[in-house]
Design a protein around this nucleic acid. Structure first.
Length: 663
DNA sequence: GTCACTGATCACATT
DNA sequence: GATCAGTGAC
């Protein structure tokens, strides 16, 4: 018998049946391995699915997981995608490099701090930290002692950040967005320079610096750029419509040597313009990479036809026309509803009652969400839900990590990690009775210039007025620094014991705040390393608000309350959009420019398109707006005047009788 | 000079 | 809730 030599089949064999589980466009995106790809992915079109399958596909095709870089908007998003990819294929997917631009920049810059003039590494400032520094500098420069009010530190921080993220000058930003401070431009420019110097001198970077320095490093240093580009051979970027110029540039530089870059986004869901996001990035992508393959995902798998009919109307109210038309095969469904409530209480009562009814009808609590424009819009509803015993988690709005009592505890930990941290010293010292800004600065300067770490605290001779309190602080810190084997949570517990009396003196509502500290310990328990804990808390803090940080741990069914910004990329069976009131949503500020108003519209589109089956818009009437001295009673312009067979008006019966029961 | 306290004023969204 | 200017006490 003759043996015929069959050649080895070098084509990879794929375990996952991509053809069967993906539509044509998705398949195209998933199986294109090389070259630049732009995926325009409409709401609910299976974007996450596409990215997930592509990760699996690349690895199945033999690409090393370490060569893949997945940049997403939140850490949760990349974790989720990689987890799903692992389920599809195998654990190799866990080795893919995933995270936010900021965390990627942080990790990279840590290794190259010297090239940037940061001699011994750096610490990341969160928003509150950078505001505090700006506050000090403003005081030292005597800018707040004029007759006219100088902008608040918070406003100043916004101006600085916008300038960086939009690539504009301070002057441009003030003229466009803060016209009332035009006279202060020279001082703001000086302050900005002082802020820059201060960060440089003290080894600090704020969020914006991470991007700026990353971009600068890649652009200026050919060796590093080429090496990083070589390491990250396959790059994927999610939510590309919400990247700013710096981020787009970072991606471009990283992909320089290979152009294996897939960006995914939806121009009609760009909602971070205030942060410099520019959906022009999507439009320009094919120009920057001329051989780009453009793929559009237009089949919506999420929403029913009645919901899609409405979201299409909303997005078509934009002046800017967008690039795609969505369709769905889920033809049947109930119409979205529009509910007018006579006041905020009634709106809350409606939502709570309807949620309980839907749960009775079999919709799990975890499949329902209430969305709103601004964090505080849910306060009244939270009270109502507590009363009705509906468990919920709130996402967005005020951050757990940014509350004063949490920052106080973290400041003590930061001192242990880095005794040169002047900002934390200041915070820790001014907590002591009879220690104010002046004494705090004298002490922290003495400790830091001594150059002998925490030990220098023993050389300080405190004034009698605060000697006792200071001794206590000293003993606590030294005791903790002498045992390097303590766990993060152990350190945390000891510090909270120390801090508790100070907390009680500082805050009237200390019992509530103390509970937060107990929750903080639970978070610490997930960490073995103090530095890692601290950098995570700055870079990727839990997104849930104060009361619900821990709630995520037990996975019981919970209603989700969320700002629309934080609801990006998510979906639920049932969505309530509350405060759909002209003057609140769109917010009054948006009337300033057409661009901002367009962004508000896209935000409404994002909110509405989160829903699969049930969608409700509610708004209260007769709301007095202090800023404008107007009474708000109209529905949001984005959903006003839509025919009743698309958006069905509901009127609430029995409002009068019920009303007095609660008051 | 320094610190603690008070009451008016302001507050959109986030890494 | 946090900020900030103004006030009085030491």
């Amino acid at each position: 018998m003759k043996t015929y030599p069959l050649k080895n089949d070098h084509r990879p064999r794929f375990r996952i049946p991509y053809e069967d589980v993906l539509n044509t466009a998705q398949y195209e995106a998933v199986t294109t391995v090389e070259g630049p790809i732009l995926v325009i992915a409409g709401a609910g079109s299976g974007k996450t699915r596409t990215v997930t399958y592509r990760v699996a596909r690349l690895i199945e095709a033999g690409i090393s997981p370490e060569a893949i870089l997945l940049l997403t908007f939140t850490r949760k998003a990349s974790e989720e995608m990689l987890r799903r990819a692992s389920t599809l294929l195998d654990h190799r997917c866990e080795n893919v490099r995933g995270g936010t631009f900021h965390s990627f920049a942080y990790a990279t810059l840590r290794r190259h701090a010297q090239e940037l003039g940061y001699e011994t590494g750096f610490t990341v400032l969160d928003r509150v930290d950078s505001e505090d520094i700006i506050g000090f500098l403003r005081g030292w420069m005597k800018l707040n002692t004029k007759e006219r009010r100088f902008p608040r530190k918070r406003t100043i921080a916004s101006i600085f950040s916008k300038a960086v993220n939009k690539g504009d000058t301070i002057e441009d930003i003030v003229f466009d967005d803060y016209p009332s401070f035009v006279q202060d431009i020279p001082d703001l420019v000086k302050l900005h320079e002082a802020y820059r110097m201060y960060k440089q001198k003290n080894g600090l970077m704020d969020y914006d610096d991470l991007l700026v320095n990353m971009q600068a490093l890649l652009e200026k240093n050919n060796v590093i750029r080429t090496r990083l580009s070589g390491v990250h051979q396959y790059i994927m970027v999610d939510e590309y419509q919400d990247t700013n110029i710096l981020q787009a540039d970072i991606v471009k530089l990283l992909a320089e040597t290979h152009h294996n870059l897939m960006v995914v986004g939806d121009d009609s869901q760009c909602i971070y313009g205030f942060r410099g996001a520019n959906f022009g990035n999507i439009m320009d992508f094919p120009t920057i990479f001329p051989d780009t393959k453009v793929i559009k995902l237009e089949e919506n798998y999420r929403s029913t036809q009645p919901i899609l009919d409405l979201t299409n109307i909303i997005i078509n109210r934009a002046r800017q026309k967008y690039t795609k038309v969505l369709f769905t095969r889920k033809k049947s469904g109930v119409s979205p509803a529009l509910i007018v409530a006579r006041d905020e209480r009634t709106q809350s009562r409606f939502v709570a009652q309807r949620i309980l009814e839907l749960r009775e009808n079999g919709v799990p609590l975890g499949e329902m969400a209430v969305l709103f424009r601004s964090g505080f819009h849910s306060f009244d509803l939270e009270i109502e839900l507590n009363r009705a015993n509906v468990p919920f988690i709130k996402v967005g709005g005020f951050k757990f990590m940014e509350t004063a009592h949490i920052k106080d505890v973290l400041a003590h930990m930061k001192i242990l990690a880095n005794p040169k941290d002047a900002l934390s010293w200041h915070r820790v010292l001014t907590l002591l009775e009879n220690v104010g800004p002046k004494a705090a600065q004298d002490i922290s300067r003495q400790v830091i210039t001594a150059q002998k770490g925490l030990a220098a605290i023993s050389d300080v001779t405190p004034k009698p007025a605060y000697a006792k309190a200071f001794e206590h602080l000293k003993e606590t810190l030294i005791a903790l620094s002498q045992n390097p084997f303590r766990s993060v949570s152990d350190i945390g517990e000891k510090l909270i014991d120390y801090y508790r009396p100070l907390l009680e003196r500082r805050f009237d509502n200390h019992p509530k705040r103390y509970k937060d500290l107990v929750q903080l310990i639970a978070i610490m328990e997930r960490y073995g390393d103090l530095d890692k804990f601290l950098s995570d808390m700055a870079l990727e803090p839990p997104n849930a608000s104060v009361d619900s940080v821990m709630a995520t741990d037990y996975e019981d069914e919970q209603l989700v309350l969320s700002t629309i910004h934080s609801a990006k990329g998510l979906e639920w069976d049932t969505v309530f959009v509350i405060w759909a009131l002209e003057g609140r949503f769109p917010a009054i500020y948006a009337a300033r420019s057409e661009e901002e108003m367009e962004e508000e519209l896209r935000l409404m589109y994002v909110a509405a398109s989160r829903a699969r089956e049930h969608l409700y818009f509610a708004y209260p009437v007769n709301i007095y707006d202090r800023g404008t001295a107007m009474v708000l009673s109209r529905p949001s312009r984005f959903i006003d005047g839509i025919s009743e067979d698309i958006l069905e008006p509901w009127s609430l019966g029995g409002q009068e009788e019920l009303d007095y029961l609660d008051w």
